[in-house]
C-alpha cells in the first residue's frame, strides 16, 4: 500500500513540476547574485545570503531560507491537501476503499508518501543549492564561517547542513499534517491546500503582532527559522528543540484528528 502511494506520487509529472518550480526561485536569486555581485548586507535579506558571495558552500542553506517562508509551504500544502481530497475528487477514493485498501492503511500510506515528498523536496532544494553554490560562487570546501564568526571545519559544516535539512523537513511535516487533516474534511483538494495555507499565513501574521505574544510560542511557524541557530557556535538548542516538540505536537494531534475523521466518514464522492 505504501509502495502504491509512493509510485502514484512520484510517478506523477505534477510532483516533479512542483519540485522544479520550487527550485526556480533559488536559481534566479543565485543567477542575479552571480551577475551583479550585489549581496545583501549582513543581517538583511534571507539568512546566509549575505555570506554566499564569499563562500558558495553556504548556498544550500540560503536556498532553504529563500523557499522556507512561502514556496516550500505552498508546495507541501498542495501535495498534502491533494492526498485524500484529490482521490475523492477523481472518484478513485471509493474504488480504493472498496478494493479494500483499509481506511487506516490508506491514511498511513498517504502520510508516508507526503512525508517522502517533503523530504525529497527539501533535499532537492539543498542539492540544487549546493550545485549552484559550487558553480556560480567561490566555494570554500575547507570549512566556513559560522554566523557567530568562528570557523567551522568542512565536516562540521556538512554535518550541520544535514541537521538543518532535517529540521526544515520536520517543520514542513507540520504543514503536511494540516494539509492531510483538511484533506479528509473536504472533497476539494484546492480547499484543503488553501486551508493549510490560511493557517500558515494566519500564524505568520499573528507572530508579528505584539498583542498575540501570549500565543506566539504555540504558532506553527514560530520556530521555522531556528535552523539558523544550528550555524552558531556553540549551537543554542533551545529554539530548535522547542520547534521540534511543537511540530511533534501539531503532527500528532492533527493526524489523530485526520484518522478519527477519515475512519468514520461516509464516502459519497
Amino acid at each position: 500500500m505504501i509502495g502504491v502511494e509512493l509510485r502514484k506520487l512520484f510517478g506523477r509529472p505534477r510532483t516533479w513540476a512542483t519540485i522544479a518550480v520550487l527550485n526556480s526561485l533559488p536559481v534566479l536569486v543565485a543567477a542575479l547574485l552571480a551577475l551583479t555581485d550585489l549581496a545583501p548586507r549582513p543581517g538583511e535579506g534571507p539568512p546566509f545570503l549575505s555570506a554566499v558571495l564569499t563562500n558558495g558552500a553556504l548556498f544550500p542553506l540560503a536556498a532553504l531560507a529563500i523557499v522556507l517562508p512561502l514556496f516550500l509551504p505552498i508546495a507541501v500544502a498542495v501535495v498534502s491537501g491533494d492526498a485524500v481530497a484529490g482521490e475523492a475528487q477523481a472518484g478513485t477514493l471509493r474504488y480504493l476503499l472498496a478494493r479494500p485498501a483499509g481506511r487506516t492503511r490508506l491514511l498511513v500510506a498517504k502520510l508516508v508518501a507526503v512525508m517522502a515528498f517533503v523530504l525529497v523536496a527539501v533535499v532537492a532544494v539543498a542539492a540544487v543549492g549546493h550545485l549552484l553554490g559550487s558553480l556560480l560562487f567561490e566555494a570554500q570546501p575547507v570549512g566556513g564561517t559560522s554566523v557567530s564568526g568562528t570557523t567551522l571545519t568542512a565536516e562540521q559544516l556538512s554535518g550541520r547542513t544535514l541537521l538543518a535539512i532535517g529540521y526544515v523537513t520536520v517543520s514542513m511535516l507540520g504543514v503536511a499534517a494540516f494539509g492531510l487533516f483538511f484533506s479528509t474534511l473536504t472533497d476539494s483538494p484546492l480547499a484543503a491546500a488553501l486551508g493549510a495555507l490560511a493557517v500558515l499565513v494566519g500564524s505568520s501574521l499573528l507572530f508579528t503582532l505584539d498583542a498575540a505574544s501570549p500565543i506566539a510560542p504555540y504558532l506553527p511557524t514560530r520556530y521555522w527559522l531556528a535552523f539558523v541557530d544550528l550555524f552558531r557556535d556553540p549551537i543554542p538548542w533551545r529554539d530548535v528543540s522547542r520547534g521540534l516538540a511543537l511540530q511533534g505536537v501539531y503532527v500528532g494531534v492533527l493526524l489523530a484528528a485526520a484518522w478519527a475523521r477519515f475512519s468514520t466518514k461516509d464516502v459519497t464522492s
Binding site: 509502495g3 509529472p13 477523481a90 472518484g91 474504488y95 479494500p100 483499509g102
Partner: peptide
C-alpha cells in the same frame, strides 16, 4: 468508473490491484 487520467489502463489496474 474512475481512474488516474495520466496513467494507462493497465497501470491503473495494477495500482488498484496492489492497493489491497
Amino acid at each position: 468508473p474512475a481512474f488516474h487520467g495520466h496513467l494507462s489502463g493497465p497501470a491503473n489496474l495494477s495500482l488498484l490491484d496492489a492497493a489491497g
